[in-house]
């Protein structure tokens, strides 16, 4: 499985709202496998959304296992067409993104999340989570809606040049 090239800020695909996936095709399964490979190949990465590899469809992969800020953990997730059911208890933390390699930013996001979506086999999935997994899921869902963390930073002084690269 090839590691995919990650699209960088400035590419229009990152600011476009993705299309929902009505029927899961072989190309979606192959795309998900390659995205998982790309995520695990990228140091520090805990998730990738399809627009980040140039595909404007509603799909992301995520795995926050082992991250120090993780509480509830569902392991490897592949989610299509996610819908947020409830989100609460906002917390501000500094975020980065593979598509914005030189900047980080302070972003306030809910720390409790209930969401649904579809798995690769077409089944409905329900995810109830918190802390870092909730943040990571919301970050990926933002990608599917054409938003980067820069669209959510707390203010003019909440954006920073990255000092350390993983």
């Amino acid at each position: 499985m090839p590691v995919l090239q990650v699209v960088q800020i400035g590419d229009k695909v990152l600011s476009s709202v993705t299309k929902p996936i009505e029927v899961v095709l072989d190309r979606h399964r192959e795309l998900a496998e390659n995205m998982i490979e790309t995520m695990y190949d990228s140091p520090g990465s805990v998730g990738i959304a399809a627009p980040q590899v140039g595909v404007s469809e509603s799909l992301f992969v995520l795995d926050v296992s082992g991250h120090k800020k993780t509480n509830i953990c569902h392991g490897l997730l592949v989610v299509l067409n996610p819908i947020i059911l409830s989100a609460s208890d906002p917390v501000t933390l500094r975020e980065g993104c593979m598509s914005v390699p030189h900047l980080t930013g302070d972003v306030k996001r809910p720390s409790k999340l209930v969401m649904t979506g579809m798995s690769l086999d077409g089944a409905k999935i329900l995810i109830e989570t918190d802390a870092f997994e909730a943040r990571a899921l919301l970050h990926e869902i933002d990608h599917l809606n054409g938003k980067l963390f820069l669209d959510r930073v707390d203010g003019p002084h909440a954006v920073f040049k990255r000092k350390r690269y993983l």
Binding site: Q8, I9, G10, P101, H102, L150, G155, P156
Partner: peptide, 12 residues
């Protein structure tokens, strides 16, 4: 910042 050999301008 530089990204893929492009200069990226960010303004908040």
């Amino acid at each position: 910042t530089e990204s893929d050999l492009l200069q990226i301008y960010t303004m908040i």
